[in-house]
Amino acid sequence: MKRIAIIYGGRDFSIGQQDFDRMKSEVEAAHRDGRSVWVRVNYGEGRPQPADLLVGPGIPIALLPIPDEPPTPADEADDVVSHGGDSGPAPDVHSALEPDFPSSDDPAG
């Protein structure tokens, strides 16, 4: 994945030519170290404008990897079948903004 969608302050931004895992690690490191960093992103459709976002502790941000190729209808159908549609528990979501706390079902926690 070389493109990342970002939701920040309720608005959509994007970053091109950036590795998702690397960007996620950089955001996590900034939060872990208690520092803020500026991230250059694109804002707008068609002819995006450059924008700088301040990322750090207490600043909510969502990173979403954009696949190189959009899924085909067959891929989407396979996903619905393998996940049983909308039934079942919600997926476990890990936030880079929150520290790791033991879950209530963790015997060590």
Rank of each mutant, 00 (worst) to 15 (best):
S103V: 01
S104C: 09
V39D: 00
W38C: 05
R32V: 08
V80A: 14
F101A: 13
I4A: 07
G58Y: 02
K2I: 03
M1D: 09
A108L: 08
P60D: 10
Q17P: 01
K2N: 15
E98C: 08
E69Q: 13
D78M: 09
L54K: 11
A30L: 01
R11Y: 09
H31Q: 08
E76N: 08
S87V: 11
G84A: 07
P89F: 04
P65K: 12
Q17S: 15
I59E: 02
Q17N: 15
D92E: 13
R47F: 08
A5Q: 12
D33P: 02
V93S: 06
R11G: 05
I4E: 07
P65M: 07
P70E: 09
N42P: 01
A51P: 02
E26Q: 15
D19R: 05
S103M: 06
G16E: 12
P71F: 02
H83C: 10
P48T: 10
I7Q: 13
M1C: 10
R35W: 02
A30T: 00
P50W: 02
P89R: 10
N42M: 11
A5L: 09
G58E: 05
G88I: 05
L97E: 13
V93L: 13
F20G: 08
P99C: 03
L53N: 01
D75P: 00
P102C: 05
E69W: 04
S104T: 08
I6N: 01
P89K: 06
D21K: 11
D33E: 14
A74I: 03
G85N: 01
Q18D: 08
V37N: 10
D92C: 04
G109P: 02
R22D: 13
L53V: 00
L64A: 13
D105R: 12
P99N: 04
G84D: 04
D86S: 11
D100I: 12
N42F: 10
V39K: 14
G16Q: 08
V41F: 07
V55C: 00
G56I: 01
M23R: 06
A74Y: 04
A77R: 09
P48L: 08
A5T: 03
G58W: 01
I66F: 04
V81D: 13
P99F: 02
V39E: 03
I7N: 14
Y8F: 15
L53Q: 02
P89H: 07
D105G: 06
G84P: 05
Q49W: 04
P107V: 03
P60W: 01
R32T: 14
V27H: 00
A108W: 04
R40A: 13
A74D: 11
E45L: 12
P71G: 00
R40C: 05
H31W: 07
S103E: 10
H31D: 12
